[in-house]
């Protein structure tokens, strides 16, 4: 029997409507990481879950085309390199590793708290990509035979 790709039309429609809302909420959590509870890790998990919704509703082939998995892999490696480079930039500015080297701004403003929002964004990308790619690789294994699909 040929495996049916994805779930029913109802699930697909609901997913299509909600996926961008979930991603938007993830971005909100990441960008407000220095102001409200949450941050890079929590927001990243939410974005990964949005991608997981698409994977569950539409199946592997569509998700591969929609997301370009190889690009996500590159983005995952790039994010940690950016993190380290930002840390080294602080060294070049005469500060300690990972220390804040730009202005701190006003309390409770979106653009405040120095480099922390930047680190939050990088961590968000890293967590979202890592979690989703782990699920992606695990979903590619056939449980009965233990071989790659």
């Amino acid at each position: 029997m040929k495996r049916q790709t994805g779930m029913t039309l109802i699930v697909k429609t609901i997913t299509r409507l909600t996926v961008w809302l979930i991603i938007l909420y993830g971005f909100y959590i990441i960008l407000h990481g220095h102001l409200t509870p949450g941050g890079g890790f929590g927001g990243g998990v939410i974005i990964a879950l949005a991608f997981l919704n698409v994977l569950l509703a539409y199946g592997r082939e569509f998700t591969d085309k929609w997301l370009k998995i190889s690009f996500l892999e590159k983005l995952e490696s790039l994010s940690i390199i950016l993190f380290l480079l930002l840390g080294i930039t602080a060294l070049l500015a005469g500060k300690l590793f990972l220390e804040n080297f730009i202005g701190k701004g006003h309390l409770y403003h979106l653009l405040s708290a120095g480099t922390i929002p930047v680190f939050n964004i990088i961590i968000g990308i890293k967590v979202a990509m890592s979690l989703f790619l782990v699920i992606w690789i695990l979903s590619g294994l056939k449980l009965e035979e233990g071989e790659e699909a």
Binding site: E73, K74, S77, L78, I80, I81, L84, G87, I88, F97
Partner: peptide, 20 residues
């Protein structure tokens, strides 16, 4: 001191970024 950790960590992800 931080370079003992930065150098191998950076190399690990640089390798996976270039890949091929």
């Amino acid at each position: 001191l931080p370079f003992y950790i930065i150098i191998p960590l950076f190399t690990a992800f640089l390798i996976s970024l270039i890949g091929g």
